[in-house]
Write a protein that binds this DNA or RNA. Structure first.
Lengths: 114, 114
DNA sequence: CCTTCGCATCGATGGCCGTCGATGCAACCT
DNA sequence: AGGTTGCATCGACGGCCATCGATGCGAAGG
C-alpha cells in the first residue's frame, strides 16, 4: 500500500527559510558569549539606565580592548546604543530592545511570561 | 565632594553570575547555527511530531555525518529527543521544550506573546 | 552467514572568533 | 604645546567548531 517501509515522510516545507535561519543564528551568535551576556546584564541592571565604558572593564575581568570589542558587537546587533559624551562613552540598552534583553537575561530566554 | 568626575558608577552587582552567564551562553551557542535552527524547524513542523533522520539529510544540504552531529548537539542540549526504532532513529522536539522551541523559531526569540 | 542499510563516531581540516598588546585618536587638563 | 586619559582599532595568535570522508556497528533481509 505504501512503498515506504515506515520512514521517509515528505517533510512539510514550512520550515525556516535559509536566510531566515541565517539571521536568527546571527542574533543568537551575538548572545552566545558569556562575556557579552554579563556585559548586557551590567548595562541593564544599572538604575541610571546608562553606564560608562570605564566601569565595565573591571567587573568583566577582560582587557579594555576585549570589552570594547564586545561593546561594538552589541551595538552592531542593535541591542545597545552608544553615546559619546565628552571623553567618555556611555552605553544603554536599546529602548526598543529593552524587554527583549530583559527576557533574555531572565534565565528563560523565551516566553518568560511568569 | 566627589572624587569621581562624572563617571565611575559603582555598578550594581545584581548582574548575571559568571556560571549563569556560561550556561545561558551555552544554550544560545546551540541555537547559533543556521543548520541546527532549520533542523529544529523541520522536526517541529512535521505534523506527526516525529521525523526519521533519513528525511533530514536532503533538505539541509549537508552530509549525513554533519546532520548526525547536529542532531547529537540538539539532543545533548535537551531540545530534542531521540528514539531508536529498529533500524531508524526518530527525533521529536522535547515535550517540555516545545513552546520554547516554538517561540525561538517564531522569529522573535523572546516574549513573543503576540 | 553475508550483504545491505541507517546512523553514530573518528580524524583531519579549514575557518571563524575571543583575546590581548600595541597603536591611534580625540578630549581634557595644566 | 605637551601630557594624560578614555576608548576604538589593528595585527597576531590560539582555540573552538562546522564540515566531510572514512570507518564502525547494530538491525534487517536474504
Amino acid at each position: 500500500m505504501d512503498a515506504n517501509i515506515g520512514c521517509c515522510v515528505p517533510v512539510t516545507d514550512e520550515a525556516l527559510s535559509r536566510p531566515a535561519a541565517q539571521d536568527l543564528a546571527g542574533m543568537f551568535k551575538v548572545l552566545a558569549d558569556p562575556v557579552r551576556l554579563r556585559l548586557l546584564s551590567l548595562i541593564a541592571s544599572v538604575p541610571e539606565g546608562e553606564v560608562c565604558a570605564c566601569d565595565l572593564n573591571e567587573p568583566l575581568d577582560r582587557s579594555q580592548a576585549t570589552v570594547s570589542h564586545h561593546l561594538s558587537t552589541l551595538v552592531n546587533a542593535g541591542l545597545v546604543t552608544r553615546e559619546q559624551r565628552g571623553k567618555w562613552a556611555w552605553f544603554r540598552v536599546a529602548p526598543d530592545r529593552a524587554d527583549f534583553v530583559k527576557s533574555v537575561l531572565g534565565g528563560q530566554p523565551a516566553v518568560s511570561i511568569r
